[in-house]
Design a protein around this nucleic acid. Structure first.
Lengths: 231, 231
DNA sequence: CCAAAAGTGTTGACCGTACACCCATGA
DNA sequence: TCATGGGTGTACGGTCAACACTTTTGG
């Protein structure tokens, strides 16, 4: 089918994906950033990004870019927003589609990261980023806050076995405020999506905290029913 | 600045915007659709769209496309999602950024519409659309539902002066269900964003219903304070 | 034995929802 | 006078937020 008659009247553009990569450990909620290795803005901190290729969808491009930096596949990855200001990239006109990812820092392959000059930054200690990347991060955080308020995503950021205090610290990191632990436990347990294990995590305290696993089966049932989780 | 060394390794793509245009009148919530006038899929119903040009941002392109069809500027217009499947447009690879708009059907210039073969369709009587446009509409409706649940957008769909029963019919159209009128009034008035006028609209009933205006000043104050409106 | 984090229940305020009758008027 | 849509108030139940003390144990 030749449609060059119609389509070819129009311009073509570079299309990129940029990934806002969230991670979580005992220090708090973090972002994975890289040192940009080409001009313009070479050497500045930046989100990990890459250009869309001919044979891949946007989702595939985002997954590829994420894989290149972290060695991870099958992670939580969601499209956020598309940035198309004419001068947003001073080098060339580039349309950038942003995605955010939630990964377990423990799974992350730091050798790959080193090759890209990547580093984790606590959210509130993040350096200024190039272009409109700060805006992208801000939007990602707002989306993450909204999503975690209505669905229990965020478990993607925790190790497979986790304690309630860890989960609470995660939610506090995401929302940037403290929650009452009695109310927090109440709401989490009401959802009935955790499986209690017969193990304790003893490194965080003398007493030790019980470990839990996320119960996918129960969660999927709940999701179909259309739950609401209000932290 | 010449960056061709880096950027030019990559492919370029056609980028389009597609507009989901919502309107509202006494019949209910409607969508403005056009008959596509070029191949592939010529003659099929489609969202109004257009290709991104070299000198405009995505937001500008969406506003231009909307203006071309409706003659309206300064309408509520918000980016939704970007579609980049390789085969989504069988004619050529096109990345499409979707936007949704809320317009007053009374303001709409139907002459321009006719030139594009445009027609309003009640949401639940919409024909099947080309490509992934049905998915776009579905996503737009879900976004509209979510937004109108937390912010009183939707007033953009009403004439300047409107009655509470009209407003309720609008919200019922958006959410696809009936609300109790006492509770609806209570919640609307609690927001304190309406100005009661000294006029009645008498065409809808014998008794007549009081007309109201949306009070922008009060609304803006409220919005800063971070209100929540739960229908 | 003590410091430090884990764990546990109750109450009051507010909000959402369900529900039924009178009002004004044109025909 | 009556049919039609507009307009009004209350009571119950559930959910959210505030709040303080006991438990465990390594050092």
């Amino acid at each position: 089918m030749d449609n060059s008659g119609y389509y070819s009247e129009h311009h073509k553009f570079y299309v990129a994906v940029d990934c806002i990569i969230f991670g979580f450990d005992q220090d708090g909620l973090k972002l994975l950033l890289i040192k940009r290795n080409f001009e313009p803005m070479k050497g500045k901190w930046s989100l990990m990004g890459g250009f869309l290729q001919e044979n891949e969808s946007l989702d595939e491009a985002a997954a590829r870019v994420l894989y290149q930096l972290t060695g991870l596949r099958e992670v939580y990855l969601e499209q956020l927003y598309t940035y198309g200001e004419v001068e947003r990239d001073p080098g060339e006109r580039v349309i950038s589609v942003s995605y955010y990812a939630l990964i377990r820092t423990e799974d992350y392959n730091s050798d790959l990261g080193k090759q890209h000059g990547a580093r984790w930054f606590l959210l509130d200690k993040k350096p200024p980023l190039i272009f409109d990347h700060d805006v992208m991060v801000d939007k990602a955080l707002r989306r993450l806050r909204r999503k975690t308020r209505s669905q229990p995503i965020g478990f993607e950021l925790l190790p497979e076995k986790f304690t309630i205090p860890m989960l609470q610290r995660l939610y506090e990191g995401i929302h940037g405020k403290k929650f009452d632990k009695r109310n927090f436990r109440k709401k989490i347990f009401q959802l009935n999506i955790l499986k209690k294990l017969d193990e304790k995590e003893k490194s965080g305290s003398r007493k030790g905290a019980w470990l839990y696993k996320f119960d996918n089966k129960k969660y999927n049932k709940l999701e179909e029913a259309g739950m609401h989780f209000s932290i």
